[in-house]
């Protein structure tokens, strides 16, 4: 298929990507950056790999690659889980298929824009969702799977909040990240709801730093999620209303820094 045909096909499936996106198109012409140097999933964090390359990159492309890497992890997580016989109960399969469909679409969206700007698309890594043995039953026991699933979803919501911030100066991408953030929040709420149905006392929103959380570095998913000071305003008992600490932490999700996101995702990358 020729490029123009691919674009035509894409337009049929995603007409909205071609509407009112003037500022995104403008930006794309200027996105060119030395992506070849930063195709490793974490080079972009600028912490462990190639700081120099990270400095020369454009923040928009950096944000796309950041969100794409989370999307890769999420789509592979559900793809693998759905392929393990007996892991997911029949009654819940439809929901995971729907979530996977959304994740795949999000991944395709970001890849499309990297390709469109002649940027190198990072290779999808191989994943081990046992965290190299730290969570041995992640893909064999449904309850364990659920606990990891909501940690990944909640972390993704937080990464999208960071993405929105990185896209600050570009309305179109900022809006895309916002609309993916709320879609991810829907997935997160549902996965938490499914875990609740297995008898775990939890709600669709994140309370504090999540007592039901996981082991080791995976706890990063919830670190600093218990913030109750928003723009210098304390929301606990705000204006005399009976708002508990827990409710205050639940009411707003907090962005996760790229450094924390790296620590969270790294154990799953082979």
């Amino acid at each position: 298929m020729k490029l123009t045909d691919i674009l035509k096909e894409f337009e049929k499936v995603h007409p909205e990507a071609f509407e009112e996106k003037a500022d995104r198109r403008h930006i794309l012409r200027n996105l060119g950056f030395k992506a070849a140097k930063i195709v490793s999933p974490f080079a972009i964090a600028g912490i462990t790999v190639n700081k120099a390359a990270a400095k020369t990159t454009d923040i928009l492309a950096e944000a796309i690659i950041f969100l794409l890497n989370m999307g890769y992890l999420q789509s592979e997580f559900y793809k693998q889980a759905l392929s393990v016989a007996g892991l997911i109960p029949e009654s819940d399969k439809g929901a995971y298929q729907k979530i996977l469909k959304d994740k795949n679409a999000q991944v395709a969206f970001w890849i499309f824009y990297l390709n469109k700007t002649n940027n190198v698309v990072p290779t999808k890594p191989s994943y081990d969702f046992t965290g190299k043995g730290a969570i041995p039953k992640a893909m064999s026991d449904y309850k364990t799977f659920l606990s990891l699933a909501h940690a990944i979803e909640d972390a993704a919501v937080r990464m999208y909040l960071t993405g929105i911030h990185m896209f600050l100066t570009n309305k179109a991408f900022r809006s895309d990240a916002m609309n993916m953030a709320t879609a991810n929040a829907r997935h997160a709420a549902h996965v938490r709801f499914l875990r609740r149905n297995t008898g775990v006392d939890m709600m669709p929103w994140v309370t504090g730093t999540e007592a039901n959380s996981l082991i080791g570095e995976i706890k990063k998913a919830y670190q600093n999620e218990d913030n109750t000071i928003q723009q210098k305003i304390n929301t606990v008992g705000i204006n005399g209303f009976d708002v508990s600490f827990n409710a205050a932490t639940e009411a707003m999700d907090e962005p996760m820094t790229m450094a924390d996101a790296e620590i969270f995702m790294r154990p799953f990358i082979v």
Partner: peptide, 13 residues
């Protein structure tokens, strides 16, 4: 955006 994602959790449920 921080509030919108929590309202999305409400909406889902």
């Amino acid at each position: 955006s921080k509030m919108a994602v929590v309202d999305a959790r409400h909406s889902a449920i």
